[in-house]
Nucleic acid binder design. Structure first.
Lengths: 206, 206
DNA sequence: CCTACCGATCGGTAGG
DNA sequence: CCTACCGATCGGTAGG
C-alpha cells in the first residue's frame, strides 16, 4: 500500500522509516556477504524496493555503508555509556559490564552494524573514514579509562593501551566463531563468555 | 622473455613458479581489497599476465582463493610445528613462542595468506571449506595442547577452549590495527607485542 | 519511489 | 599463456 507508511525529511534523517529499513537490511546483508559481495538489488529487494530506489535515500552505495557503521557506533555508544551511568561500580565490575555489553553489541538480534564496521572497513572510502573514527574514538576512550584504572590497581598486567586492543580484539573476533543459535548441543551464552573473558585477562586481586 | 622461466607440472603444483606468483599476488591483493573487491585483471596484471591467463592455472577465482588459504595454513603449520620441535621447553615458554610465531605469521613480509583466510572466509564456497578446516584443526590442536597444560598448571584462568578462541582472537585482530612500518614515532615490535600478550593472559606462577 | 535504461566491468571461454 | 571475445551483472541516472 503505497502512501500508508509514515515518512518525513527524506534526505536528512530522523523519522524516516524507509531509510532505516534500508540501513538495517544493508547491515544484515553486508555482514553475511560483505560490502562488495552485496548488490544494491539485494538490499532493495530485501525491503521491497526496485533496484534504483535506494538512490533516492543514499547518494551511492558507499554512503549506505557509512550509514550502517555510523548507526552501529551510535547504538553501541549509547549502550556503553549506560554502563558508566551506574554509580558505585568498582573498576572490576564496570569492566565486566563493558565486556558483556560489547558481546551484546556484536551478537544480539539485529546487531549487524559493528561487525560490518570491523570486517568491511577497507571498503569505506577515505573521505568517509574520519567521521567514523571520531565516533570510534569515544568508544575507545571509555574502555581506556577503565583499563587504566585496572592497571593502577594491579589487576591488569599488560600495558593498558595494548591491553585495550587485545581485549577488544578477543571479543570482536567472536564475530567469526560465535553463533547465538545453539547448533547441536548446549552452547556458551554471552554471560558466560563475558565471565570467561574477564577471568582470562584479570590478575587476581589482593 | 617468454620461455625462459622454469616450470613443470602446470595443473598439480610443485615447482611451478608462475602459479606460485599468482597465489602470492592474489594474497596481497585480497588482503588489501578483499576477495570480491579484487579483479582477476588486478591479479593477472600484478604478475604481468593477460586477463584470461590465470585460468590456465586455476579453474576459477574461488580456487585461487582456496590456494591462498591453503598456502597460508601450510606455511603457518610448518612454522608452528617447528616450535614444538624445540625440546626442553616449559609450557609457558612454548606458549610464548607460539604467540610470537603467530604474530610473525600475520605480519612478516609477504605474510598475507592467513589474514585473507580470516577476513575472506565468507567468500569461500562451502565445497572448498572442508579442506581448509582440516588444516586449521591441526593448527588449533597444537595450541590447545599447550593451553591445556597451562590450565593444569594454574597459569590460565579461563576454560581452555574458550581461552584458545580468545587468545588467538586477540592476536588475529592485530591484523586490523598493527602496522609493521613505523608510521610516525617508534612502534611496538612483534617481540614486545608477544610479551605483552603473554603478560595479559597468564596468571602469576607459584 | 518506479520505469526504463546505460556504460562499464567482470568472470570466464574458445581457439590457437 | 595470449587474443579476442561474450553474456551477465552491477552501480547509477533521467524523467516522471
Amino acid at each position: 500500500m503505497p502512501g500508508t507508511r509514515q515518512r518525513t525529511n527524506p534526505r536528512n534523517g530522523a523519522p524516516d522509516n524507509r531509510r532505516g529499513e534500508l540501513v538495517r537490511a544493508a547491515a544484515q546483508l553486508f555482514r553475511e556477504k560483505g560490502f562488495e559481495g552485496t548488490t544494491i538489488r539485494d538490499i532493495a529487494g530485501a525491503v521491497g524496493m526496485q533496484s534504483g530506489s535506494p538512490f533516492y535515500h543514499f547518494a551511492n552505495k558507499h554512503e549506505l555503508l557509512m550509514a550502517v557503521m555510523e548507526e552501529g557506533l551510535r547504538l553501541g555508544l549509547d549502550r556503553t555509556r549506560a554502563v558508566l551511568d551506574e554509580t558505585g561500580l568498582s573498576a572490576v565490575e564496570r569492566f565486566r559490564r563493558l565486556v558483556r555489553t560489547h558481546y551484546g553489541i556484536l551478537h544480539d538480534t539485529g546487531s549487524d552494524f559493528i561487525p560490518v564496521m570491523l570486517y568491511d572497513w577497507r571498503s569505506l572510502p577515505a573521505q568517509y573514514r574520519r567521521r567514523i573514527i571520531e565516533l570510534k574514538d569515544h568508544y575507545d576512550a571509555i574502555w581506556q579509562a577503565t583499563l587504566d584504572e585496572l592497571h593502577e590497581e594491579g589487576r591488569l598486567a599488560a600495558e593498558p593501551r595494548l591491553a585495550r586492543l587485545m581485549i577488544l580484539g578477543a571479543i570482536n573476533f567472536s564475530a567469526t566463531w560465535y553463533r547465538s543459535k545453539p547448533r547441536s548441543a548446549q552452547r556458551v551464552d554471552l554471560d558466560t563468555l563475558a565471565d570467561e573473558t574477564v577471568a582470562l585477562v584479570l590478575q587476581p586481586g589482593a
